[in-house]
Simulated scan of single mutants.
Amino acid sequence: MPLRPSRDVFITCAVTGAGDTTGRSDKVPVTPEQIADAAISAAKAGAAIAHIHVRDPQTGKPSRDLGLYREVVQLIAASGVDMVLNLTAGAGGDLVLGSPDAPLPPDPLATDMASAEERLAHVAELRPEICTLDCGTMNFGEGDYVMTNTPAMLQAMAARIKDLGVRPEIEIFDTGHLVLAKWLKDRGLIADPVMVQLCMGIPWGAPDDMASLLAMTANLPEDWTFSAFSIGRNQLPFAALAVAAGGNVRVGLEDNIWLKKGVLATNEDLVRQAVQIVEGMGSRVMTPAEVRAKMQLERHW
């Protein structure tokens, strides 16, 4: 397979995520002010796109509170710093079963299953340029948590996102998710240009080795735009692999809290490292305006 590295690359910064990282790093933003500041700093460092979750300010746990999303977006807008907003729509698909001896009923405290409309309420009000669409169901981690996105749910969410005029970023965690994404596109539920995020190294999805990445990219339609990332210590090396494979880059504290061994990172730190990697490979970092033009995005917020 010939090497076709990307010459123009956009960087996404996933600033906080929904994982249990706040207890391991005090740099992970929690409050709306901290999340907005992290996105602004990442944009100033070179990230064109800010991928945003929100957290309960009191507990640090993931939330889908519309008011928290509203506050984050308002703070970013008031800053005057340009960036493309990418709001998660993954919350509301969290199924946590009971023990192996008694899997039903699901754990009522940890399970959060919501309708398509509820999962997209913040997207409908705030109208970011992009929102995520987790394209499949999979075991996640070592416990009883199942990331749950049925074909029927994905059809409903994709149709609603299209009606809102928001570009879905299709999150691909394994090879079957890519097949499902193609099926949604064939049904007219995803508009061109198609935007894909290859999420690698997450138990128990696609591993973050080069062969798995190339297997994924080999099955992507040529006119689809993709980014790729790995979690943990391979985040920054994977930025180089993504560019070499013809894609774009994602970094941020959602996926990795370390800058190097023993040194906790900030989102700004990781974006600066990603910029160095991209430019060191002879490529150019794209601006938010260039990403909007390339991906035909509309700013409403």
Rank of each mutant, 00 (worst) to 15 (best):
S63N: 07
V15W: 00
W224L: 03
D192M: 03
M286E: 06
D101I: 09
P29Q: 03
P108D: 08
G67Q: 14
L236A: 05
L180N: 11
T137Q: 12
L264Q: 12
D101M: 15
P29E: 08
L87Q: 08
M216G: 02
A181L: 06
G23N: 12
A110Q: 15
E71G: 04
H177W: 02
Q197K: 06
V285N: 02
E169K: 05
G19Q: 09
L253P: 05
T12K: 00
R70A: 13
V194T: 14
M153T: 00
A159S: 07
L164A: 11
P100E: 08
A124P: 09
R7V: 09
L68H: 08
L126G: 02
R4I: 11
W224Q: 02
A181K: 07
K260A: 14
I130C: 05
P105N: 10
H122S: 02
M157S: 09
A45T: 08
M195E: 03
D269S: 03
R7K: 15
D209E: 10
K260Y: 12
P105S: 10
H53R: 10
D101E: 15
M1N: 10
I202L: 15
A121H: 05
L241V: 01
L259W: 03
H122Q: 02
L87V: 07
P168Y: 10
W183I: 02
Q296C: 13
D37L: 13
Q155A: 05
A50S: 14
I130A: 03
I172K: 04
G280L: 11
G280S: 07
R127H: 13
G93H: 01
E279I: 01
L3Q: 14
I130E: 05
A152K: 01
V54T: 03
D269F: 00
A114Y: 02
P221D: 09
P106T: 13
Y145A: 14
P151R: 01
N256K: 04
G262R: 10
R70E: 13
E118M: 04
P203C: 08
M147P: 00
S227F: 09
A242V: 00
Y69T: 09
T287Q: 11
S283D: 01
G280C: 07
A215M: 15
G67I: 09
S63I: 04
V30S: 12
T16D: 10
L120M: 09
G280E: 07
G98T: 08
Q235R: 04
L164I: 06
P5M: 05
G23P: 06
D223V: 13
M1C: 10
A124Q: 14
R272N: 12
G176D: 13
T137H: 07
V263D: 08
L3N: 14
K182Y: 00
R7N: 07
A158H: 07
E268P: 12
Q34R: 10
L109M: 09
P2S: 10
A48P: 02
